[in-house]
């Protein structure tokens, strides 16, 4: 509840407006040599970092974009990230 999230398009907003989209795990893996184990690892396994974690959020009651933030999972506070392309990426609905 105490969480605030900074949407790259709309700015800092109440955490209620967002939906969590999981840890940052990178794009879907290549099909070549993909084992069921590796797939399961990608889909289901999480690092559950106690500390700063990069993660996805969806601005459901706002602009409707997916974007990433860094959040300290122990304090539930957002950490600033320096990514100049962040706004551009969110506007295009994802990363280039």
């Amino acid at each position: 509840m105490a969480l605030t999230i900074t949407c790259p398009i709309c700015g800092k907003r109440n955490g209620y407006e967002f939906k969590f989209g999981g840890e940052e795990k990178g794009p879907r893996p290549d099909e070549k040599d993909l084992t069921p184990e590796a797939w399961c690892e990608y889909v289901h396994m999480n690092k559950c970092v106690a500390g700063v974690q990069e993660e996805w959020w969806f601005h459901k009651d706002g602009c409707g974009s997916w974007f990433k933030i860094h959040r300290d999972t122990t304090t539930n506070l957002e950490k600033e990230v320096k990514d100049e392309n962040r706004v551009q990426k969110a506007k295009s609905g994802g990363q280039k």
């Binding site: 996805w56 997916w66 295009s92 609905g93 990363q95």
Partner: peptide
């Protein structure tokens, strides 16, 4: 639906 489709396209930078 919007959330779902955009989520699964989030790494691709597709234009739609």
């Amino acid at each position: 639906t919007v959330e779902w489709i955009r989520y699964h396209a989030r790494y691709d930078g597709w234009d739609f």
